[in-house]
């Protein structure tokens, strides 16, 4: 199957979105709410491209646009350029002076916004990646609250989400780096979602290593028994391998203290 992006034909095999093809071919399309591990969401509107032929002509979100034979796309036409700039300026007005936002804006040639800046500065761009990864993890501990410009991400009623596993997936994916988990006295404290998760102890070394609910969930869902911290797990695996390779005598297979 062939599609045309900015005048060049590209061959595409199998299913993919226009954004994926562009990324593969090194054509830059800005994104904020796209994450390769998640389904298309279409919220940030930065990835809008123009369909010239092969579909309903006009602007559409490339992250959610499946490629089809004969699709002709412009990623940098004047129309795309204009709407992208306005979108960026709107994001800048809602999240003023956020470094990651400024950086992206600069990349798009936008330096300032003509719109009234939010009175309560907020760094969250509401890409929803955290909420979506959390739902994918299967607990939906966090979600959206309020409508319109009051929208926020939080645990239910802004209280400690009682289904949070402490998996830290959200922390990992937030493009703004806003989510932070910290260990304190055997409790994993996650902000801004007010997560409070009791941690599990490594059965080898006794250190806290992950949210206790994670251990149970892994066992339950994938039948994986995790009772060692990553380091002890590594040591254990190395020992097993060494043993299998006949090197057992070089290792003390008795319990080892850290």
């Amino acid at each position: 199957m062939y599609i045309t992006i900015n005048g060049t034909d590209y061959e595409v095999r199998g299913e993919s979105t226009v954004l994926e093809v562009a990324q593969r071919e090194g054509i830059y399309i800005p994104t904020l709410c796209h994450h390769p591990a998640l389904e298309p969401y279409g919220a940030c509107r930065l990835c809008l491209v123009e369909i010239i032929a092969g579909g309903r002509p006009g602007l559409t979100a490339s992250c959610a646009l499946p490629v089809s034979e004969g699709l002709v796309i412009e990623t940098d036409s004047p129309r795309v350029h204009h709407v992208r700039q306005i979108t960026m300026k709107l994001i800048m007005a809602a999240c003023p002076d956020v470094p990651a936002v400024m950086e992206l804006a600069e990349k798009l040639g936008v330096t300032d916004t003509p719109y009234q800046k939010a009175s309560v500065p907020n760094s969250c761009v509401l890409c929803g990646i955290c909420v979506r990864i959390c739902s994918k993890v299967g607990t939906s501990a966090i979600g959206f609250a309020y409508r319109g410009s009051d929208r926020q991400v939080m645990g239910p009623w802004d209280k400690t989400p009682d289904t949070c596993l402490g998996c830290r997936a959200c922390e990992n994916v937030c493009p703004m780096g806003l989510i932070k988990f910290e260990e304190k006295d055997g409790v994993l404290i996650g902000e801004p979602f007010k997560s409070r998760v009791t941690m599990a102890k490594c059965s080898e070394c006794g250190r806290f290593f992950t949210g206790a609910p994670m251990v149970g969930t892994l066992q339950q869902r994938v039948g994986l028994a995790v009772d060692l911290c990553p380091e002890c797990q590594k040591t254990k695996e190395a020992r097993l391998l060494a043993h299998a390779g006949g090197l057992g005598r070089y290792f003390n297979l008795e319990k080892q203290d850290h």
Partner: peptide, 18 residues
Amino acid sequence: TQKESCGKCVQCRIGTKR
């Protein structure tokens, strides 16, 4: 519309407010 916007996308959430 600004109050009733679901707030998902940038154009509507921020644009109608501005």
